[in-house]
Design a protein around this nucleic acid. Structure first.
Lengths: 234, 234
DNA sequence: ATTACTATTTTGCGAGTAG
DNA sequence: TCTACTCGCAAAATAGTAA
């Protein structure tokens, strides 16, 4: 789903909802309120919500007393996506986004997840390499959080969800990156569920990054995200 | 003109043009190219450009050989505006934007301009105070340029253009700000012509800011731009 | 090749109203 | 009150084509 497939009304509605904190939690709202705000009819507001709901951009519970609306992670992604496009529009000379962060030690979850055969197969197929069984956790510096958000706005390589006997594993979003000073392919991974603001980015590579780069906790590295100037043609 | 009055097609077109550097200079493009990119008919692309041109969002010279298109300052403003709305959507808890900069000495132009009676009248009427005859020039730190762009995306108080016997004076855009640590009303002013990236913000106030705050060149100050959460109702 | 007019089709809005 | 249906009309898209 592409932000440019939404009508301007739907986009405006999405922004309005997010500004009213509907990205974090369900908010109460009536179609009449929306209609008044946007100077449209109540029917049109209703139709818009209906469509956003069908597109899985918002979840929506309607009742004769009003509506409860919340953005889905797809909805937030739409906004991130638009933000990246705008960034490229306002800074067409920008070739890459640079992010600084420090090495941190996770709870070993990353290793557990990427070791799952269901993921490993997809990694090999879609990323073109078999990742080292471990992730390098990078805590993004606070003044680079916006850059991380920009990366989220780009079209990721999607590692599909799957399930085994015990449980289900969600989708993983992958972003091809570079570590400044290292030539090897590196990929940032973000589990789809986690659209809550996380300031830790997990990196995978064919190599054991921690050893190769001889990194200790709190060491600082710089990550580079190359921008491409072709938009997905739907 | 409000960004939310554009159709999504027009918005997409505007972003596309800006991404192709049409904010800086005239670019060559044909309506057929646009039609292919957006998967619409050539006629619709033509009409979109026509409309953007009529709204003075782009300048457009068409000929049987193709078109030359360039964004106007209004066009860039549309994008800045959308960026601010998105910022508020993605960070609904943000109450203000903070910018750091250092004091610098201008060429005395600021004083010349704001002393013009044509401006002075408007300042008094629209800002509610008679500014001190001089501006405090603040060179924005490079890592705060984006915040300055966000301010440009807000709806300014507009001091109208006028002319006297000798020459014409353009519009001035005013943004109510705060200097951290000072209670007095302060206003950032940007001449409308200057939509070229300027990293200097001129501040005016009833007070002589330089003296009141006892500032020397290269001193650092922090500026705060309060965000409001009501959108203009057309 | 272009742009852009006219005719026709399609989409989408708002009014009225049922649940 | 709410949401959300149908219907009639208006706006906007496409196709064909002229310049």
């Amino acid at each position: 789903m592409d932000i440019f497939n939404l009508s301007s009304r739907e986009l405006g509605l999405l922004i309005f909802l997010a500004q009213n904190r509907a990205a974090e939690r369900e908010i109460e709202i009536t179609t009449t309120q929306l209609a008044n705000f946007f100077h449209i009819s109540q029917q049109t507001a209703s139709r818009c919500l209906l469509k956003l709901n069908k597109l899985e951009i918002v979840t929506w519970k309607s009742s004769p007393k009003g509506s409860l609306v919340k953005l889905t992670s797809d909805g937030v992604y739409m906004l991130d996506q638009l933000r990246l496009e705008l960034e490229k529009a306002l800074h067409p000379d920008l070739m890459s986004i640079k992010i600084r962060g420090t090495i941190t030690t996770g709870k070993g979850e990353g290793k557990y997840y990427i070791s799952q055969p269901g993921y490993m197969e997809s990694f090999k197929k879609k990323l073109g390499f078999k990742p080292f069984l471990g992730t390098l956790n990078v805590k993004i510096k606070s003044d680079c959080i916006k850059q991380l958000e920009l990366i989220r706005g780009s079209w990721p390589i999607i590692i599909e969800n799957f399930e085994n006997e015990e449980r289900t594993f969600g989708k993983v979003l992958c972003y091809p990156l570079k570590i400044v000073g290292l030539d090897a392919k590196v990929v940032g991974i973000i589990p789809q569920r986690t659209h809550h603001p996380s300031n830790v980015l997990e990196l995978i590579s064919k190599l054991n990054l921690r050893d190769t780069l001889n990194l200790k906790d709190d060491d600082e590295i710089e990550i580079e995200f190359p921008l491409e100037y072709k938009r997905e043609s739907d």
